[in-house]
Amino acid sequence: MIKIGKAVKFTVLSIVFVMVMVCFFSRTTYVVREKFGTEMHDLFTKFEKDSLDTIFVGTSHQFCSISTDLLDFEYGINSFMLASSGQTVPMTYYAIMEAIKLQHPKTIVFEALYCANDFRVIDAGMSHMFFDGMPYTKAKRLAINDLIEPKERIYYYFDLGFYHDRWIEVTEADFKPREYSERGTYFSDHVMYNWEIPVVDKSEKEPMPDEMKKYLDMIIELCKENDVELIMYVAPYNALYDDDYARQNLFYMQRVFNWIEEYVEPQGIPFHNLFYEMDEIGLDGNTDWMDSQHCNYAGQEKITRYMVEKGYIK
């Protein structure tokens, strides 16, 4: 009897100890974690289940081009920005899997920049930005196992191991949530001159990388299976530098976008290549860019309004 009592006491104490540890270390992880990007999932999970109509996925070009707040305030479109910097096509596939599981939106808007980049992941910083705020769902587990090298996986399940040396730069702000838009809208008021964006002829095409095509097909299939409308578009951007090498890279990407349009539209998926609609959008190189590739709030507003007014986003 005494032995049973001791065993019960030991078990209860062990469980309480583990719970205290988990709470303590979750809080520590939150404090040292890099906040930019990782809080997106925290905001996303705060929405009531199946309450969002539209979810935006893709890269920084997505969140710099679309304002979900504007969509809500002025057009009554109930949406969320689930895009993140360096979100590759495989990552987008898992982001959509999570989005469908938690929200089952009517529409997913996929900004297709990285369809032309043959990367499963860009670098550890961007991968962590995508994964670390993500709740421990099946999508997260599948994504980590698929995209992350085995020896690195531990730091995605246990990201304190990745961020712990940020204790050096922790400030008061790290103890509080950032004042984000609750719909994940990114806001930049930085202004940088952007030179004229060169565009290839629409007839020029180049196939997308095989690996990315495989994931694009998986995205299309996933949306079909779950009866979610998939809309694809590519936001305009300039070459990274005003030189020939960067320009050739931009042209390659544009040829791939033209190929993707031809590939997905017969499958009933609209693809809006905004490189060919820049004049109608009215983007101004003097006022609408935060750098050569990303719009600031002014460009973001123009693209968002244009997308709604043209009926690309409903």
Binding site: M21, F25, T28, V32, G161, H164, W167
Partner: peptide, 17 residues
Amino acid sequence: FIAGIWCVLVFGIYGPG
């Protein structure tokens, strides 16, 4: 124990860097 584990996990030299 908690202080020790916390110190190792936060101040320890380990991780991808």
